[in-house]
Simulated scan of single mutants.
Amino acid sequence: MRLPILALALCGTALPALAQEVNVYTTRQPFLIEPVMEAFTAETGITVNLAHIDKGLVERLKSEGDRSPADLVMTVDIANLQQIVDADVLQPVDNETLKSAVPEALRSPDDLWFALTSRARVVYASKERVADGEVTTYEDLASDKWKGRICTRPGVHDYNLALLAAVIAHQGEEAAKEWAAGLKANLARKPEGNDRAQVKAIWAGECDISLTNTYYMGAMLADDEQKAWAESVRIVFPTFEDGGTHINVSGVAMTKSAPNKDDAVKLMEFLVSPAAQAIYAEVNHEYPVLEGADLSELVASWGEINADDVNLTELAKLRPAALRIMEEVGYDN
């Protein structure tokens, strides 16, 4: 027999309380996220369940559809964020706390994702073979003075495609193609390996500079074997001739299914708070997106960054053109 609504209300205190939790799908290693999630739980009492999904995140969300237990997704790089947007598995979050904390260039114009931290694609330069002031602009990396002195990972990797997309945004496709060809002509070896491998090559004397993300410096300094590689170089922040230093982001978005939407919004708001920004950025050796949030001592030691203000969504749209250019110049051949 069904109880009347009034009876249900009166006996409500005898029913178990609904669990407060947020389910997060993430491509980031759990140890990079757990400290800030533990701080959120300590402050709110809301449990965060992390599911690390290294590959196939979009496919999983699409296959689960409305049944997905995921409330939020956290990933890195604008290419991955845009792929999730294109899969139509997200819902917008129109939230003033998020909008006031995250600069406009670092969030989706339709409120589908918000950056949490940023990283810069910069030059790692040999302390022994590269003079102070020798590295200037991204455009200059295609000049003859760098002939045989540059190492990079493959050009079709997302990090380098995002940088080339930024070149297109500033200079146009024809100039970007000339730049990619010039960069290729200056390579000391065939593009191979990851970002750390490029720094190792500098340490080994194979090249003098590399294109590498900032946070790898922190990761290498914490590794017994790689510490020597890191100590052989310094970070230099090139800029575009008409802009700033190219950056990319880690970000968060809410799924369409979001069974715990209210608590998920609370977590999103917490992630852009000053305390959370400091924790998350320090663990990852990245830059907070919240203006005025504390930098880690190590990240601050690298110097100030004048971030480029091209909206990352625009860069995502230019990614196909960047890929075509890399293939046309045969960058990885």
Rank of each mutant, 00 (worst) to 15 (best):
F31K: 14
Q20T: 11
S250Y: 10
Q198C: 06
C207F: 06
A281F: 01
E231K: 10
N186F: 12
G205D: 08
C151P: 10
P288M: 03
Y287N: 00
S68L: 02
R153V: 08
P92E: 00
V89Y: 00
S232R: 07
M1K: 13
E38C: 07
E269N: 13
V167H: 03
R319A: 15
N49R: 12
T136R: 14
M220R: 11
A281G: 00
D294G: 04
V233W: 01
V76E: 08
V199Q: 05
V265N: 13
S100K: 14
L267E: 07
A70D: 06
M1W: 11
V233H: 03
H285T: 07
Q198W: 04
D88A: 14
H285W: 05
M74G: 04
Q277S: 04
A7H: 13
G172Q: 06
L161F: 01
A321I: 09
G182K: 06
N284P: 11
H157D: 15
G205H: 08
A316Q: 12
P274L: 03
L18C: 12
D54F: 12
R324S: 15
P320M: 00
D242I: 07
D242L: 09
D144S: 15
R189V: 15
K177T: 11
D208L: 07
R324N: 15
L271C: 00
